[in-house]
Design a protein around this nucleic acid. Structure first.
Lengths: 70, 70
DNA sequence: ATGACTATTTATAATAC
DNA sequence: TGTATTATAAATAGTCA
């Protein structure tokens, strides 16, 4: 999905890799949020970056008002 | 991404919702795998369906051979 | 390093089988 | 129900501000 087709293997150029990480991480979480809302499911995502930084996403469950989980 | 633009809210038709769940769950996990490989990061995804079925994805870490975690 | 742009690729909604 | 096709929407790689 870009100007050129990208081979799915580690991007060797560091700045390109960081840019791709930022863009695709955002895209992944957006897709998870949409899936959660469209299909009424709960999703959690954990991303552990190469430098140990943690990114997380969790659908709040606010879209699951049809029953109560304890 | 389909024949028509889709509003991001719960799909009321059950069979449409199940089809969307199947397709989008697969797509989400594919994107996670690509992100993991391209950017050399570890990712875990947990999906808890409306009927209590659990789906999970975890990048194996096989793309993280640069160091050993204990 | 961000943030916008856009040409192009990728994902998928509707459809057909 | 499942699989394949295809028209269209969405994501994004490279680029530039």
């Amino acid at each position: 999905m870009g100007r050129r087709k990208l081979e799915i293997k580690r991007i060797e150029n560091k700045s390109s890799r960081l840019v791709a990480f930022s863009k695709r991480r955002t895209g992944l979480i957006k897709k998870a949020r949409h899936l959660s809302m469209l299909c009424d499911v709960d999703i959690a995502i954990i991303v552990f970056s190469a430098h140990g930084k943690l990114y997380e996403f969790c659908s709040s469950g606010s879209n699951r008002q049809d029953y109560l989980r304890l």
